[in-house]
């Protein structure tokens, strides 16, 4: 008698459950995307295919303004987070294990574990003080806040890459008269590049997407795309929001696909 291995895939009802799950996950998104191309003013009544709402969103100066702000914050926050994460990853992998190292891992990844609302409230309190002291109320606060919660996302792929890298290569560079800086520049950094790019893109997407912390930290007139959409939905709901969300979705899909592609190219 041939005994079949237990496989979850072949269990009765599994396929059905999987289908329902996918359906529930993607159906709302599909509806959102479809209605972005709606010609009518309603988000529930179909009035024919059109790019009307994309045009409206594109020409809306408030959307332009929020989109620019989102991009600026994401670029700066992802850059700072990636630099910090690279240094943190080097410091935590290029050293023999010592007591307290695990604690440091936990510390670096802390933003993943602390509820976002807690960080948001804490930052609101601290930044409101700082605003009073310094009189400065620019984008710096948002960039700083985004950098903080982006660091663990940038850190993870960079550390994974470093851990899979052969330490002997750096030793070989040192053996061939490369100072530690030259060995880093000529050997470690080029080999680390895919990890750094992946980390940057992940951080970028996370920053673009943030609502909670941004909502708490932003000053008046500092809407990002997500907080702008939130504000819109509170008032009147038009398919313009669908159009913005769809464009947003497209950008994220492109970035995340590129992220997987670069990660796959590892060796």
């Amino acid at each position: 008698m041939v005994r079949r291995r237990f496989e979850i895939r072949t269990q009765p009802g599994f396929a059905f459950l999987a289908l329902v799950t996918f359906f529930m996950l993607y159906l709302p998104i599909a509806v959102l995307v479809v209605y972005a191309f709606n010609a009518s003013d309603s988000i529930t009544i179909w009035g024919g295919l059109s790019l009307h709402w994309f045009r409206v969103a594109w020409n809306n100066s408030a959307v332009q303004d929020a989109a620019w702000r989102s991009l600026i914050i994401a670029v700066f926050a992802a850059t700072f987070a990636t630099i910090t994460a690279t240094m943190a990853a080097l410091a935590t992998t290029r050293t023999p294990p010592y007591p307290g190292l695990t604690f440091k891992y936990a510390f670096i990844n802390q933003p993943l574990m602390v509820p976002e609302i807690v960080t948001a409230v804490a930052l609101l309190i601290v930044f409101s003080r700082v605003k009073v002291w310094t009189g400065y109320s620019g984008l710096g606060y948002l960039i700083a806040a985004h950098t903080a919660f982006c660091i663990p996302f940038a850190y993870l792929p960079i550390r994974a890459r470093l851990e899979s890298m052969d330490l002997t290569l750096e030793r070989a560079a040192a053996d061939l008269y490369a100072t530690p800086w030259m060995a880093f520049k000529r050997i470690t950094l080029p080999l680390l590049r895919p990890g750094i790019i992946a980390g940057f893109m992940l951080a970028f997407v996370i920053s673009l997407d943030d609502v909670v912390i941004t909502e708490f930290v932003k000053s008046g007139g500092q809407d990002t795309l997500p907080t702008y959409m939130l504000g819109q939905i509170r008032r009147t709901v038009t398919p313009e929001v669908n159009a913005i969300a769809t464009a947003f979705l497209a950008l994220s899909v492109i970035l995340v696909t590129a992220f997987f592609f670069i990660n796959r190219q590892k060796n």
């Binding site: 052969d166 002997t168 290569l169 030793r171 070989a172 560079a173 040192a174 053996d175 061939l176 008269y177 490369a178 100072t179 530690p180 060995a183 000529r186 050997i187 080029p190 080999l191 060796n267």
Partner: peptide, 27 residues
């Protein structure tokens, strides 16, 4: 190590994977 006039042939060779053969030798 980078101040010692001594070179090593590693058991795993440890060739730099992002450089060509010539670039490895030139390093």
């Amino acid at each position: 190590p980078f101040k010692r006039p001594v070179n090593t042939v590693f058991q795993s060779y440890a060739l730099f994977p992002h450089l060509t053969v010539s670039e490895n030798v030139a390093f």
